[in-house]
Amino acid sequence: MLRYMVKKLLSLAVSLVVASAVIFLALEVVPGDPAANMLGINAQEETLAALREELGLDRGPVARYADWVGGMLVGDFGTSYTYRTPVSEMIADRVVVSLPLALYALALSTLVAIPAGIWAAARRGSGVDLGVMGLTQLGVAIPNFWFAMLMVLIFAINLRWFSAGGFAGWDAGVGPAMHSLTLPAVALALPQAAILTRVMRSALLDTLGEDFIRTARAKGLTRGQTLWRHALRNALIPVLTIIGLQFSFLIAGAIIIENVFFLPGLGRLVFQAISARDLIVVESVVMLLVFAVIMVNFVVDLTYAAVDPRLRRSR
């Protein structure tokens, strides 16, 4: 088990180094002069020179890369060119919205999808199964921004249960903050839950067809006992994989929903930074997102090992 963890940690470190190098190369080295890119074609020569100095472009790329990575390791992400504030502060402001939103959406989707998938699989071919499968078809097909606007129309404008957008902030307390994240979380969770339900159902049906399920039935276990004790845990591996992918997506991919609900999240920050050509912010936020994705995958790998004894021995 220790060997498995160390191996996964090593691959995590390698992934981070490679990802940071790729991001750095793509944004700072390859397309010519970053200062010119940030300021656009009408920039004055003095402004360009000032920015070049600020970015330290007079030094070699290796030294700049080392500075960038070294800075991130101690929490210094540089200063935003457009906002003139430390990027770390901007990210911190946004993470407290994006991360809870992603977790909230993931919790909703998992809490709905796993029972629904199990229910459909246990009653394969019945009305329940057909109903659940039909709903997931809809859930996958409906664009989530459209669903978000529909919810705003119903729950914010007509029923007035929720506000139509904005974030209450954590200072106001957990209740109001979560309240303002509810509609966006539901909108984000809908397609995820639909996909996850289908994965849970098909994984469970595959497992229920395995030989060891028949062995368990021959021991005298009821259908239900067989499902809970033997099939479910075996069916979890594909489900965990999808949950990991979905969480990574939710952290970074909520741009549209954040825009619909006017939420100050990371997705909007990247979007704004790209529009403003603020390379310093883009580079740092992208790196942070990559870090999050890699960490999530690491956690998923550890969960695999917790579920499946065969993986505890590294090969």
Binding site: D211, F212, R214, T215, A218, P309
Partner: peptide, 11 residues
Amino acid sequence: FQEPMTALNPL
């Protein structure tokens, strides 16, 4: 049963 390799729950 016939197939001992798959007749047991691997977990």
